[in-house]
Design a protein around this nucleic acid. Sequence first.
DNA 1: GTAGATTTGTACGTATGTATA
DNA 2: GTATACATACGTACAAATCTA
Lengths: 237, 237
Amino acid sequence: MNKFHDIFLELEKGILDGTYQPGTLLPSENQLVDQYSVSRETIRKALNLLINAGYIQKKQGKGSIVLNVRKFDLPISGVISYKELQSAQQIHSVTKVVELQEEQVGDSLARLTGWRKGAAVWRLVRQREIDGEVVIVDIDYLLKEIIEVLPEERAADSIYDYFENDLGLAISYAQKEITVEAATKEDQELMAIQEDTHVVVVRSVVSLEDTRCFEYTESRHRLDKFKFVDFARRRKT
Amino acid sequence: MNKFHDIFLELEKGILDGTYQPGTLLPSENQLVDQYSVSRETIRKALNLLINAGYIQKKQGKGSIVLNVRKFDLPISGVISYKELQSAQQIHSVTKVVELQEEQVGDSLARLTGWRKGAAVWRLVRQREIDGEVVIVDIDYLLKEIIEVLPEERAADSIYDYFENDLGLAISYAQKEITVEAATKEDQELMAIQEDTHVVVVRSVVSLEDTRCFEYTESRHRLDKFKFVDFARRRKT
DNA sequence: GTAGATTTGTACGTATGTATA
DNA sequence: GTATACATACGTACAAATCTA
């Protein structure tokens, strides 16, 4: 659709499949201009996407250096659904819907999301099973005003796919927080873990393009199965 | 120095000090063009920095909506990384250098960083104390080839300030990984925690602008004092 | 060491398309 | 329907860093 985004995808593909090796240089901006028959600004936009994603590092006067693509990731980096993560990592996993029912927004949920107290939400609880073990419990709250209908068979698959492709929602950004907390009774039951242990809690407030918050999630992970990978650029002061 | 970066800083300041309220719109791009007497592209570059940092959300035909920046930073469980701790000056903290000596790169370090096995590195161990309690232990490995001299008094302050301002290094990006692991003997001693407990380990491989890796860090956090906050945008497919 | 070619960085201008109010 | 506002794209110019002959 967009030229610069298409070019980004092509270059990304080249980096991932080894056409462009880590440590080597991408073709120069002017070469890419000729190659794709677009203006230099379009190329630079595509390269900026690669920079932000951690694929390349540019050096003035030199070129665009291909970075080492992170190898063993099991991350929750970015706004990515569990389903997408799983297919990207080729992990065999099973999702079970434990609970799907309507509730009303309480005080703490209202404070976190900005939702009106008493508003109707879906409460969705799912177990994520890998190699026969439940390692994650996801607790989702979804604003009924935006998600009116939520079929259980879609919840067992990928709710993000349902939201974007069936409902036409534009999911845009999320604020996340990671802490370690004592396991609740529900954690102990759903993940078959012992008392007096902890879980990693990833809380996310997810919003649409128009800045409406539609989802609050608590992703509760078994300690020993948790890993978060991130790429960060240093901010210039 | 750069126009678009200066404008970014000014707009950021306006958002942080409440000049631009969450939920309201920034001045339009054309208004900003007049206000700063620059071209529209320069304004758009500044706005892109705000977008990536999670300060605003743009909507075509509408404008740039100011987001609620710290909605999620609840005073539940204290601390993020030590760096954010420092910038949020409100917390009184002390750093103590436990160890600073020369070592040689071993197998695992060589694998993580790409450093030559046997190369000389500084090993720096520091305790981070907040309200009289050691809550973080930082273990840094610094390549001597790049960091030739490391005065202990600078290590007790901020090594990044030393690297950037005294040595003129251009720190550029980091790959990070967060896991939860059993506390080592060293953790137990340095943080005064019990046996059979866990710590959050933040491993970082930090590189310069020229893609040379100069630092490997393990930041080991007490479980109950750990908090990591992140902003993420959904990737278009 | 220097001069020149190459490459990226910044900035401005213009035009057209698309979404919103 | 019109005006406003952002999105994309092309072109130009000059500055700064890097590399090479």
